[in-house]
Amino acid sequence: MGSISTRRLAKELRELSLECPTGIKILSANDFHTWRLSIEVMGDSLYQGQVFALQFIFDAQYPIASPEVTFVSDEHYKAPIHPHVYSNGHICASILGTEWSPILSVAAVCVTMQSMLASCKKLERPPDNDRYVRHAPKSPKNTRFVYDDDTV
């Protein structure tokens, strides 16, 4: 019993609870709809000592459809200051949009986010942050991002 999406998520969760990539911890994963994981950038980086939380929202089409991934921005966690992360937590990353593939997974997304933060050279918001945040849809999946930076 169970759909492809729940079976696959169950498996991913099993694997994550056995062994999480370094710097990544499950905060909550009580259903197959919303998961939260904390991520920390290991080694030398601009984000040393900071812990962020990633929120994953899955739909029934997962893994055909990409999960909705945002940085949590509430009283406990803040979205990292990064040229590809808006202050509302939305992330402009092609693997969450057009470059998504079912070969990716929750762990793979977390690791990619880690390396995106790790390679950051300058702490700044995206240039259009204020405008975007004012008009942003609830789900970043309804935004059409233009992926202009191949270095991430």
């Binding site: 929202i57 739909d59 029934a60 089409q61 055909i64 459809a65 789900s139 999946k141 309804n142």
Partner: peptide
């Protein structure tokens, strides 16, 4: 479902 990728968040 095609565009689940975009719209299915809700």
């Amino acid at each position: 479902d095609l565009q689940a990728g975009e719209a299915a968040a809700d």
